[in-house]
Each structure stands twice: as structure tokens, then as C-alpha cells.
């Protein structure tokens, strides 16, 4: 093998590694995971008795500033409170995935994570394969607003910004479906 061929082979190998690494670096928890424009179809019912939801002002894992309006984008929003060390949060992930699959564009989901170390959070998202935007709530300000004392916990906000329910300990599929079917109509 000539020197030139060796160099060419090495360059190609490096290029392949770089391309594969770039392809594997899926956006995690950042702006790319925000809800897209909703297709026309479903209509949303406001829950009259629901108080205004507490603030969700914060920053996503990639530093993107967000608020409730941006996260919900005109549809009901499930808010999942989690932590990287929370073993029972894994059970919630399956329930959230089921809701995301079932309601599609009619439902938005956000994870509010209470850990302090972004690399830990990134590793957690990679490990769990979570496809949602993730707010890093380092000082637990959002947790406190929703009276979350321990993860997991789940909150449901209707399309009009009303706090429908908070489930300490997290919600199961049937419970979330029952509530969602009442506010996602038509």
C-alpha cells in the first residue's frame, strides 16, 4: 500500500466516524423537540373550574427560553416532573409514550427535570431515549410552583392554560386518558 493510499484511507475513515457521530447526536431536550404546528381537527374544551396553571418559564436543556404558551402551542400540555436518579420515573415514561402516540399533535408534553448537572441530564435522555423538550429546573422553582415534593409527578394543563390536575407520584395511562378525553373533543 502506498503512502498516498494510506493517507486517503485514513481520511475516509475519519470522515466516516465524524459523519456517524453527527448522525448519532440527536437533539436532546432542546428547541428541536418543541411541538410543531398543529393540524386542524380536534377542538379543546376548557375546564371551567381549573385555576390558571403556575408558570413554566424556564430554559430548555439547550438554553432556549420557554414559557407555557410556547410549550403548549395551543393544545393541552402534560408536564412530567422527573429526575435522573428516579427509578419509578421509568414507569411514567411508558405511560407518556402511550399518550404521545395516542393523541399525536393534539397533545404536547414537557419534562421538568430537577437535576443540576446538564451532562447527567444529557446522559439520562440518551439512556432513556426521551423525545420531549426538557426544562432544567435547577433551583426547583417550577417544582415548587406545582407543589412537587418528590418525583415523579404529572400535571395536566388544558389548552386554555388551566391547571386540570396534578398527580403526585405520577399518573397512569387510564387516568390521563380519562382526563384528556374530556378536554380533547371533536
Amino acid at each position: 500500500m502506498t503512502v498516498a493510499r494510506s493517507i486517503r484511507t485514513a481520511v475516509i475513515a475519519v470522515a466516516v466516524v465524524v459523519v456517524l457521530a453527527a448522525c448519532g447526536a440527536e437533539p436532546r431536550g432542546g428547541a428541536e423537540r418543541m411541538p410543531e404546528e398543529r393540524a386542524d381537527g380536534a377542538s379543546f374544551t376548557a375546564v371551567e373550574s381549573a385555576p390558571a396553571a403556575p408558570s413554566l418559564d424556564g430554559e430548555l436543556l439547550d438554553g432556549t427560553p420557554v414559557d407555557l404558551d410556547a410549550l403548549a402551542a395551543g393544545r393541552p400540555l402534560l408536564v412530567q416532573f422527573a429526575a435522573t436518579w428516579c427509578s419509578t420515573c421509568a414507569d411514567q415514561e411508558a405511560a407518556l409514550a402511550a399518550m404521545a402516540s395516542e393523541y399525536g399533535d393534539d397533545l404536547a408534553i414537557v419534562v421538568v427535570i430537577g437535576d443540576e448537572d446538564p451532562p447527567d441530564i444529557t446522559a439520562y435522555l440518551d439512556r432513556r431515549g426521551l423525545p420531549y423538550p426538557v426544562i432544567v429546573d435547577q433551583n426547583l422553582r417550577i417544582w415548587r410552583g406545582y407543589a412537587v415534593t418528590e418525583p415523579p409527578a404529572t400535571a395536566l394543563i388544558d389548552a386554555h392554560g388551566g391547571l386540570v390536575r396534578v398527580w403526585p407520584g405520577g399518573a397512569v395511562e387510564s387516568t390521563m386518558r380519562e382526563q384528556l378525553d374530556q378536554i380533547i373533543t371533536g
Binding site: 429526575a83 419509578t88 418528590e150 418525583p151 407520584g169
Partner: peptide, 22 residues
């Protein structure tokens, strides 16, 4: 903290430093 008996848990606020892996 209010929990279902027997579930896995960590310390609830303000004891949330006591969690698995700490």
C-alpha cells in the same frame, strides 16, 4: 410525604438530597 405504601422513594423536599445514587 404522602405516598403509596411500599413504593420506591427518595427523600421529599426539603430532604431531596437523600436519593438513590447519592
Amino acid at each position: 410525604n404522602l405516598r403509596a405504601l411500599g413504593v420506591a422513594c427518595a427523600g421529599a423536599r426539603p430532604f431531596d438530597d437523600l436519593h438513590p445514587g447519592a
